[in-house]
Write a protein that binds this DNA or RNA. Structure first.
Lengths: 355, 355
DNA sequence: TTTTTTTACGCAATCGATGCCGATAACGAT
DNA sequence: ATCGTTATCGGCATCGATTGCGTAAAAAAA
């Protein structure tokens, strides 16, 4: 099987002790330049690489960080992971990714698996199902470094990275109002998720600001964040079968938006003529869709970067950290065709052509 | 900082030796049932977990496998990774993902990083840029377990998992012919990629079968697999500005397809009326797009599963493996609207409307 | 009672790398 | 000639867990 050269092999071959070889390789001044040269040349010739596992055992750290997200097959998270990676690899850290698939149980299992000392810290975005966070609390209480991003919890005091969900939702809703829509529904993820609460508040605030009464039946939460299509399908169908059907939807996530559009499509609903839609997304896909998707854009890559920098700062801190910060990044609404201005006449004409 | 309980702590607390504790926890018959009970209860109370790093050092294996792909923000690969994960975690393996972003250099760096003994084996899908595979050959020659999937090489003899790219491409092209298209272009990834060659051959075979002459200028390769938009944009523009403009495109990958559609959109080209398109994809997105994307579907999840099973078989094999297998999975063409039947009259009318 | 066997456990080496000491030799200083 | 200093290197313990071997005491056989 595969055997790599060790420091011991070099020592034996060169008639030195392992300590001398070790020091020679690290360029210690205690070693004569002749010996150093000999050792380094031999090491290069046989392509010596220090065994990272032995180093981990010795240094009591693995130089790897764990990422706990719901899914990587999601543009927001894969971009965030790219950001995480970009920082981590430069700082000499491996990245180990685990997916909860929006399941609380799998999240718990993954966290335990990662934390049983094979990673030095955790970057976490909670699953939609997660209501109890004991599995993180236990670790955090022991001093294990954790940074939350996007879907955070206020029950644990540590570094956090979020976007201004309130403002993003406010902007999205305001944009729909400006475009002439008044019956604006809100399709949201699980109600106890931090991002859901904040976005709901932003949505409500924009409505209030414009004198539009809040309508409870216009808000639909999906406990599983869109992972279960039937759940989402029911939510969307409930909305479109409402007596006073909404003329616009503010959808709070990529998966929700995409599935919502799928339901629209099979129901023969045209966007934006029948119902306009604004998403909350990181997807560059908005551009490729037909019609283009208006969306509140989140700086996913940057969130990953900032979270990783904070985590590494925690990991490498000499003394226990007690001062934590919450970094809030800004969203930006990108207007495309899915929320085109509501024009009664034009809408009517097009419908005739389409029908 | 975070310190976990070790076998030594248990030994000290209970007045035993570490060997006794170790054996008690593993249920050895050499330990009295009283002692066993005592040790196990203590371990449970303090939530003892064996240090995986120490185990790795002792057993000379890390129980982790490395994945080398171009991107995770790609439906095909994220699905494949889900398949990989589903097998790996059940067998007690961690999964470490690295992305080359279609860069040869980054692929080399990632492979070296992973292989310097922190992973027990590698699952690889080559980057588009990769022409030389010395970085894999070196490892493979030393007996390091590697399994290739999707984008493979025939220069290394090991387990491989692919789909029937030839037949997939053949089916896609035949489908376009059946739908009435005759001027079928082919948008492909880097020319030296295994999948590119096979798909090109399938495309050619279908043309020949139908008595359609092969037209060199109808085939466009993208060295960077669509990672560089300008490169792809040029390829697509070359095609649509051809004197004898194609009426259909067989596109060999998700990223190519999406970017191609983006170019179409900005050029005001309607699908399928102006140009039909068939993709090669794993994307469920085909359903969500407007019009729906006809695509050759690849069983990405299953590919990941099979590749992982083969890799673990390699890793856990007692003696050196010399018999290798190449698993070929089947594709399936999913017909949607982007390749709707070409109707001369209707097409003429619509073109006038569009123009 | 003596010998043999079994039970139940500890010692020490091992995995690879590091780092604190201690050892040795050369060399200058006194 | 003796001592102190410096340069250079080896010995050993360490990180956490496993395991072959040795051994004391208890149990069984003689």
């Amino acid at each position: 099987m595969y055997e790599a050269i060790t420091i011991k092999d070099i020592a034996k071959a060169l008639g030195l002790s392992t300590s001398t070889v070790s020091r020679a390789l690290r360029g210690s001044h205690e070693i004569s330049s002749d010996t150093k040269k000999m050792v380094i040349e031999y090491a290069e010739q046989f392509n010596y690489r220090p065994n990272p596992i032995a180093l981990s055992l010795k240094e009591r750290r693995s130089r790897s960080i764990g990422v706990v997200v719901c899914e990587i097959a999601n543009n927001f998270f894969s971009q965030a992971i790219n950001g995480i990676e970009s920082i981590a690899y430069n700082r000499g850290y491996h990245v180990i990714i685990s997916q909860s698939h929006e399941s609380y149980e799998r999240e718990v299992v993954n966290v335990e698996h990662l934390a049983s000392r094979s990673v030095d810290g955790l970057l976490v975005s909670l699953s939609t199902e997660t209501e109890h966070i004991e599995h993180f609390k236990n670790l955090h209480d022991k001093g294990f470094p954790i940074v939350f991003f996007d879907r955070i919890t206020d029950e644990i005091e540590t570094h956090k990275v979020v976007v201004d969900n309130y403002k993003g939702a406010y902007d999205a809703t305001q944009h729909l109002v400006d475009a002439g829509y008044k019956k604006i529904a809100h399709l949201a993820s699980s109600a106890h998720l931090s991002i859901s609460k904040e976005r709901l508040n932003g949505y409500k605030a924009a409505l209030a600001e414009n004198g539009i009464p809040f309508n409870e039946s216009y808000v639909k939460h999906c406990q599983h964040g869109g992972m279960i299509f039937t759940e989402l399908e029911k939510a969307v169908k409930d909305l479109i079968h409402l007596k006073d059907r909404p003329d616009a939807i503010f959808s709070a996530g990529d998966r929700l938006t995409l599935s919502c559009l799928a339901v629209f499509k099979s129901a023969g609903i045209k966007v934006p003529d029948d119902i306009a839609i604004v998403g909350f997304s990181n997807s560059t896909m908005g551009d490729l869709m037909n019609p283009g998707l208006t969306a509140v854009n989140q700086p996913a890559f940057e969130m990953g970067q900032v979270a990783t920098e904070l985590l590494i700062k925690l990991i490498e801190s000499k003394r226990a950290v007690t001062e934590f910060e919450t970094v809030v990044l800004h969203t930006e609404i990108i207007v495309r065709d899915s929320s085109a201005k509501k024009a009664e006449v034009k809408s009517g004409k097009e419908k005739k052509v389409a029908g």
